[in-house]
Design a binder for these strands. Structure first.
Lengths: 339, 339
DNA sequence: AGAATAAATGTTACCGGTAACTCAACTCAT
DNA sequence: ATGAGTTGAGTTACCGGTAACATTTATTCT
């Protein structure tokens, strides 16, 4: 494909300008809608743009001007997840509306993976980054400081954020649910979660719940954290383990709704009734709950709003507009009838 | 933050080279491991790289050399989806291993949205793109031709692809399931789907199933395609509609497993037994099926393999290595006991 | 009408890397 | 010891836009 230094596909701005009989600069101005241009000049340039199929080269633009690129890096734990998927979708939508491109990465709850991703992404001189890890390596923090690049930490609420934090108060979610479950008279409460690799925010909700138990002089009668990703099967299996180990368990707090639904199915398979025999509480407000015969007791979370706010905050910071450093995204305990 | 043309964070290659007492070019070569350099030169450069916290500027690199960038654009219908999430995850992993960065976009089954995304992405001169739309606008096709950029179409199998196609044979999935459902003696079969905007590949599976019915001189007794995204509730609601309309329906083919599960729950709520009263067949092999008391009759699909193959094929094409133009990703009908 | 002002367009230099080429130093065979 | 071959390092030009400044053309005002 062309010689060593030949260009690939499209034509250049110079070619467009030449064909339109104007200078490169004029063509550039027309394309960016900066300052006034004559109706006629504008038309001439645009005609050639269409005729030649000119595609602007943002790499050259980002490079040539000091103007920061329109790339934004977003790193989430994983993509195969309703909740993170929803957040990412929302972030991407919003950024896209503001003219930014999203570059993704996944860290699977590994701070080192997050750092590796960050190093690779920074080479593209992004306008900003959105992180979702709850802990960062020393390296990550140093790099971000050195580059003085806008950063939004999402998902978990960080009260002393690197820059901006938009997240749920996981501790409070757990604490509130703990009080609720206790208020329903449950005595022997267990926790079932799943963490592959480093702990995510489920751990914090667990601690919040534990604090509520502690306020009543109690504690979890047992805790089961599988080495797995939170999914239906982990919930099913974790529940089996817990109930086999300590039969008096009369309520279980799950890391999230998928696991809670798994647990619910386990109970059903054993003829145990939710709430009556075993209270079941989840987190996340996932969709499946809406068609279960039971209304799952859970905490619904506003993933869309979270993503939107995160993206908007980042854009505002990039543009130098005033931004709220810490935003708590809404969560709401939905009683249901499984507790 | 510095004057009009001042640079933001890090130092430049020239600064590193200067500090190390070598030329820019030598430093560049050391960093890229090209040709030999003395152990000593290498050390001197790397020491300065670390000391100055130098982050290479890929924008400048991509711009300066004719070498195509390491960006790859990937456009999926939506991010909040287990199946697409899994594909995207797999694509991203694989590309990342090969040193590529993934830039995402969503099209929500709108060919126009796909084209708009493509135009924006091409401005970054990506090394290649991965599309998942089953139809493309004329504009999309023209642009891709003009840019002569590697393209992989995923998800649906395109027998005359723009470039490379890696996908499932949705028609065959439907056809196979149709034959299976018929073989179980069901007579009055309905279809329940959901399409927000343009039709996705569910439509093709529906046609495959229809063809199987046609082979036996039959047709769907009714078809219900809601204007919604495929989810549990749409399955629940669609089933209600279908059964209320035509009570003799004794089997339903669903657009996917989430909808089938929704339908299953509707049936349960009405005291109808799956298989016995109403046969239920889904598609996708989604996780929830694994904890249902029933084993859902469905077609499992290899999303991970699909993503991996798509990414690998794209990389091979980018590198000019031989590639298989069309790859059929595996699907398997899992009988279960709901039909 | 001619000067003052505003608007549209042109010129020049540069962003930070890398390809292609040139040059210097060192190795080795005759 | 001398010339050919090899290897490490330096020079130069350039990628395709855009900021800053210079210049021309159109408009307004006295």
């Amino acid at each position: 494909m062309a010689g060593s230094r030949g260009k690939r596909g499209g034509s250049t701005l110079a070619e467009v300008a030449n064909a339109a009989g104007v200078s490169k600069m004029t063509a550039s101005r027309v394309l960016r809608n900066t300052s006034g241009s004559t109706e006629e000049t504008r038309d001439r340039v645009m005609r050639e743009v269409r005729r030649l199929g000119y595609v602007p080269n943002r790499i050259a633009a980002a490079f040539g001007s000091d103007q920061i690129s329109t790339l934004v890096g977003v790193c989430v734990p994983r993509l195969k997840s309703d909740l993170f998927g929803s957040v990412l979708d929302s972030i991407n939508q919003t950024l896209s509306n503001f003219g930014y491109q999203t570059m993704i990465g996944t860290h699977e709850q590994s701070p080192e993976a997050e750092e590796a991703w960050l190093r690779a992404i920074l080479a593209w001189r992004p306008a900003g980054v959105i992180l979702s890890g709850h802990t960062h390596t020393r390296g990550t923090i140093e790099i971000l400081r050195a580059q003085s690049i806008p950063v939004v930490e999402v998902w978990n609420l960080n009260t002393s954020p690197l820059d901006i934090s938009v997240g749920f108060n996981h501790f409070d979610c757990g604490h509130e649910m703990g009080r609720f479950v206790l208020s329903k008279g449950h005595q022997n409460i267990a926790y079932v979660g799943a963490e592959a690799g480093a702990a995510g925010m489920g751990k914090v909700r667990q601690e919040g719940f534990k604090a509520a138990l502690s306020d009543s002089g109690k504690d979890f009668v047992t805790e089961e954290v599988l080495v797995d990703r939170p999914n239906f099967y982990a919930g099913f299996y974790g529940t089996e383990n817990v109930l086999n180990r300590i039969s008096k368990v009369d309520a279980i707090y799950y890391q999230d709704d998928t696991m809670a639904v798994g647990g619910l199915f386990y109970c059903k398979s054993k003829g145990l009734k939710a709430a009556g025999d075993v209270g079941i509480a989840g987190w996340g407000g996932m969709e499946i709950a809406s068609v279960l015969p039971e209304r799952l007791t859970t905490t619904t979370v506003t993933t869309q709003a979270l993503g939107k706010t995160a993206a908007e905050s980042l854009v505002a910071r990039i543009r130098g507009e005033p931004v709220q450093d810490i935003t708590v995204a809404a969560t709401r305990l939905v009683p249901g009838n499984t507790v």
